[in-house]
Design a protein around this nucleic acid. Sequence first.
DNA 1: GTGAAAGCGCTAACAT
DNA 2: ATGTTAGCGCTTTCAC
Lengths: 339, 339
Amino acid sequence: MSDTSNERSSGRITMVDLARLAGVSVPTVSRALRNLDSVLPETRTRIHALAAEHGFVANAAAQALRGRAARKTAIVFDFQSSGPGSTSPDAFIFELLGDVAHALTIRDFEVTLCPRENSVERYERQLTEIGASGAIFLGQGGQHEMLQALAARFPIIVWGAVLPEALYCAVGSDNFKGGQLVGEELKGRKRTSILLLGNPQTEQVRLRFEGFRASYGVGQHRMIETLPVGFSYEEAYRAVLNRIKDTPKRLDGIFAATDTLAMAAIRAVREIDLVVPDDVAVVGYNDIPQSQAFDPPLTTIREDDRRAGSLLVEKLMQIRDGVRASSVRLDVTLVRRAT
Amino acid sequence: MSDTSNERSSGRITMVDLARLAGVSVPTVSRALRNLDSVLPETRTRIHALAAEHGFVANAAAQALRGRAARKTAIVFDFQSSGPGSTSPDAFIFELLGDVAHALTIRDFEVTLCPRENSVERYERQLTEIGASGAIFLGQGGQHEMLQALAARFPIIVWGAVLPEALYCAVGSDNFKGGQLVGEELKGRKRTSILLLGNPQTEQVRLRFEGFRASYGVGQHRMIETLPVGFSYEEAYRAVLNRIKDTPKRLDGIFAATDTLAMAAIRAVREIDLVVPDDVAVVGYNDIPQSQAFDPPLTTIREDDRRAGSLLVEKLMQIRDGVRASSVRLDVTLVRRAT
DNA sequence: GTGAAAGCGCTAACAT
DNA sequence: ATGTTAGCGCTTTCAC
């Protein structure tokens, strides 16, 4: 006669199998595996041994159905747009993604990637559908209002601008101060006509530019103009080139919203035989690894530390546990290099 | 009296609730929602409307438990190591990650990030635990043998080296040919002492170097040496600097396993006042976006196309459907720029 | 300390 | 075209 209900050809063992092998009931197996002390130590050891031997893996779906709190976090960012030539996410975001994923993994959380949606409902649907117990947004992506609403209904943490009125917990560099530092720098270097490169619809960029304006000031001897571009190198390169070759109105400083954009600007500037930094000073933001290696090494804003990833995760855990989590602005410094 | 079994405070609606609201049985709701044509069109419409109205989201755990084939793919790569200063993954991998995630998302697959493990058992455990129906490895990561074994037990696709003896489906650039192209190039440019920069333990790197040796040849007038470094910019920079300043033995060409390493090499070379490419020619691999922007623009190897991401996903779908999927070597070309 | 019974939310098989 | 019944694999009562 064949075996009663054991390991199917699929190879996956269930608790029923283990129970029979151990000569105990299923609940006992369950208890033993979870180390509940209502199980005789000897029994427990035996069951653990059998489980290991047969490569038993608990069925996560069944556990979830039974109500075990999910250990699963969604990471939301804009990978959708990283098609050929489009506005791919900044390299900085990928670095951060790696850090966050790592921090979650060592806490034994599952990490799921979710694309940006365009409504609170869709976010909520998406997140509950996959059974995530929380979400980390990498950048507001201009969805501040949506995030406000979503935060009331789902545990989220946002990397990005720390806005005073935000109802959600945000972690990000002190964008305003970063902008201020750049303002002081360019003012100190006697620059009188500045181009702000980046799209202020992005909350972080807006704050950076506001900080800049605040410290740089505008008067008869100081002008500021904005060139709103996305985060794509190509787009920025073309936009800057257009700007400076079409209207030869003098421009002696550029504050780019990211290092990538700064690199694009430098290329454009050199294209028309202007010298960086003598003719045009350029300052970026983020201090991504390439910035130091870039030729010329980029002057840029660096965050206080690289613990952003684990900080985001810690905050999310707090919220998950019902604790209020406060937003954090990471301190920034200006790294003066060659541009 | 209070409502019988409806929407709990948690806010999540189940099919039971929907069924009562619609005045039908639960299976009917299930059928209607899945658009089985055994349901009266009118009923179906009504149920869909109710579902939408109440924001019903099917419980994925229950569905999975009931045996619905999982639509979930794990992406395995080395984000663990992206801690401060360590061997972070190459920028190229992140690009690819974005593409793959996108391709999976539009197919309505969930995307889960998994760290590298160090045994077949752990991989299998990890993957079945999260209930993935397949996995995409971003780079062999020196685990060719492990992948051989794993492939027999789980649907996987590997981005990386296409090895003749591989039992798994691999998609990758034609590393050997890429190396050959570099060999021809440096030979044509009369370079006589070449440094291969990169760790040949990585399968792709090994193939690139083998290709190089094959076309460059070694004789009394041509020497090759290898400097095995990881994928970290800093590490490569220091290693190259050490190599060229400690032993001033002439070196007039460098073939770097990635563009990032090439950039590091260039920085080191310039550090000791050698000129690129006059004194030392440098060729990279991958043609990442920054390579064009780099100063000097990098000579490098580019893959035939950027559809690698969707190709990986297509192949995985084939295997999932029980179809054999053949490996693919993407054609490569040498992009000659300034180095 | 352990077992028997019930049920999480859904779908497949069988009725009708 | 719809309802009834059963059960996925696990955990949580409640007995003993």
